[in-house]
Amino acid sequence: AGLVLNPQRIVLQDRERSASLDLLNTDDKAGRYQIYFEHKYMKEDGSIVDIENPEQGGPYAGDMIRYSPRRVDIPAGGSQTIRIAARRPKGLAEGEYLSHLVLKQIPQKADANSPATPKNDEDIQLNLAVQPVLKLAIPVIVRKGASTTTASISDIQPIVQNEQVEELHFSLHRQGNFSLYGNVELYEKNGEQLGSRI
């Protein structure tokens, strides 16, 4: 998309107060972006949707974070750092607070094509330019307290086709007070030891 973000998620653990987000414009044109928070959540199927009435919930991570700058112009091949500082309010309950930091592209004025010369006064010349607007969002998580979170796997179902296991279906469960993020890896079993990673 022409914009590389590092990291792609920000987690401020208990007592951590600051972080930074690096933006790299890999496009051959300058990019202008507006930066703001939105409130979203992830459904069980992995899709991320907007919270319809955020004023009825919260607090959210975005409510306790200050960041700068809020609008950036990044030249072609250039970079920009966004500074993030969290201020947890007094009396904040232990737990995890989530918002999404959004970077929305501000379109540059499109270059108009040279208009054709009308043959007569009744001819109408119309120039139309369609320009996509890039919008990226990354999760920002503020935590308070110690983690009690664990993960487990159940309902493992090998899907066999042509006498070979083509797919592996399973349920991944989270227990505890924080969300989890990571990879699931599959290994061969060599007796009671783990073999090579599949």
Rank of each mutant, 00 (worst) to 15 (best):
A1Y: 14
G2W: 15
R15E: 10
S18Q: 15
K40C: 09
K40N: 10
M42A: 14
K43I: 06
E44H: 05
D45C: 02
D45P: 00
G46Y: 10
E52N: 04
Q56P: 09
Q56R: 05
G58A: 03
Y60A: 02
G62S: 03
M64H: 06
R66G: 15
Y67F: 08
R71E: 12
V72E: 00
P75K: 02
P75C: 11
I82Q: 00
E94R: 08
G95H: 06
Y97R: 01
L98S: 00
L103A: 01
L103N: 02
K104I: 10
Q105T: 00
P107I: 06
Q108K: 04
A112E: 05
E122W: 14
I124T: 15
N127Q: 13
L128M: 11
L134M: 14
L136Y: 12
V140A: 01
I141H: 04
I141A: 01
K144P: 05
G145I: 01
S147P: 00
T148M: 07
T149C: 10
D155K: 04
Q161D: 14
E167N: 09
E167M: 04
N177P: 09
L180G: 10
Y187F: 14
E188N: 12
E188P: 12
N190K: 03
N190F: 04
E192M: 11
L194C: 01
G195N: 07
